[in-house]
Amino acid sequence: MTPASTTASRQLLPVVPLAALFFAAFVLPLAALVLVSLFRDPQFSGLSPVQYLRFLSDPFSLKVLTDTLWLGAEVALATLILAYPLALVYVASGQFLRTLITFLIMLPLLTSTVVRTFAWIVILGRDGIINSAMLSLGFWQAPARLLYSWEGMVLALTQIQLPLMALPVINSLLRLDGNLTRAAEGLGASRARIFLTVILPLTLPGAIAGWLLVFAAAATAFITQTLVGGGRIILMPSYIYQQAVGVQDWPFAAALSLIFTLAVTGIVFAIGALSRRFVRGVDAA
């Protein structure tokens, strides 16, 4: 070994303990997950891809997967619609409003997921805020079923994941060259037109980054899905949990986890790659 390469590898010495830990507690378990998914039955009696075939030929399982991915897409779209106006106001305002918006965005990010989900149970419940307000104002005759519904789940997840969308969108808007919008304004464009033809296209990378973060987070949000969605809505995380812990069918649970992981990360990487190839704008954070 040459002296230069010795010093270069010596610099990596402090990395060794963590690398060892990751090998033992991350790489090895994932290898075990792949291995277990290839067993024929829960008794581990032989290797075969039967678990994957079982998933692909079962309409119920396929629907659970597509529902879960659809939930992620829907929530990500809803947060996108909320995040842009918030970011536009943030960029246009002074120090006080900026600090306030930052604090409001950080607040849900820092309060525990169970606490945030619990808040939505209080808001959406039978005696919750929305039902008591609508009943006392006379809009509704009887309490609506908001908790344990798909719509309630989308609403709760939208609030819970909004910070993940707002931060990258605000970052891209901050990096946008102010001269571009001022030029469009000077040439007589309306503010709506400036947004659609200048701001939106140039900040698209940030929006896509946020969309992917929220998509992945909402699709995998076990706590909110089970508590706000309720037992009747079965999505991939609760399906995996039920198969692994309830039924103790580890090979099928392992196959489900891998299929779900591949579906989510596959979509994230595919959209990320497409956007890097075709969308040009200010860099996303």
């Binding site: 090895l28 378990p29 692994a244 990360t265």
Partner: peptide
């Protein structure tokens, strides 16, 4: 950060 944490949790249980 990228891997769904449910898959990682299950993989630890298995190993």
């Amino acid at each position: 950060m990228v891997l769904p944490a449910m898959a990682f949790g299950l993989s630890l249980l298995l190993v």
